[in-house]
Amino acid sequence: MSTTSINALVDAEQGSSLWRDAWLRLSRNRPALAGFAVLTLFVLVAILTPWVAPYDYAQQNLELGATPPSADHWLGTDIFGRDLLTQIMYGGRISLAVGFIATAVALLIGVSWGAIAGYMGGRIDAVMMRLVDILYALPFMIFIVLLMVVFGRNMLLLFLAIGAVEWLTMARIMRAQVQSLRQQEFVEAAVSLGLSPLAIIWRHVIPNALGPIIVYTTLTVPSVMLLEAFLSFLGLGVQPPETSWGLLISFGTETMEEYPWLLFFPGLVLAITLFALNFLGDGLRDALDVRGAKD
């Protein structure tokens, strides 16, 4: 066997035990498990909504208008007399999809970009990070409006547009992490063993830098859901009668004194999602943090 293949084998073994240990630690973390359970439940409900929703989401009753929670409508109705619970369930389909997919896009681009820039350093790093600076500075709104004109309105573009802004900060955080990791012994050891830079980044650097990334990601998902409401305002995103949590919240805000339930329930659902994500995120970080575990 060549040295490289031995190394690969060792790596693979190390890798798998790292993940296994992490899973073990995670499964002992109650808040994290609870968070995971809540998110799974939300996703399940979102998937099953067309079959389990109590009402048709578009059906209006203008004469009924906005009514507080009642036996017929558990969470009340909106100004068109539509059932709020149904609206939240359908809104969840969009918001969860946007939240998770757009964040995943941002994560993928941001983490790879930041890791490569941070690891390579020097001129490559400078060019890559200045590109990030440029994208930061461009007027976002005009950018979105243009994207829409060029590509027309569709959901794919929505994911792309959100991913396109959110990856920038991810890249910065990742780069900072990688820069400090690069000096550490285990990376230098891997370099001296002759592993390719990409392999080192993927196997050694990224897993060790995941902590802050996970924390930032859990914060990103809810803000992405709210960003979607702004993009809908620009015309990208969902069109009525479809809705999303972000839209329900922004409409609810307008009438928070007259019809507080229209704000409270969508807000509550978003807050629960945020906390669930947070507990899960913290659990994941602790589980993956080798140093913390040794302590």
Partner: peptide, 10 residues
Amino acid sequence: ITLANEEWKV
């Protein structure tokens, strides 16, 4: 009928 909102200038 499908709805399409656009920013003012668009």
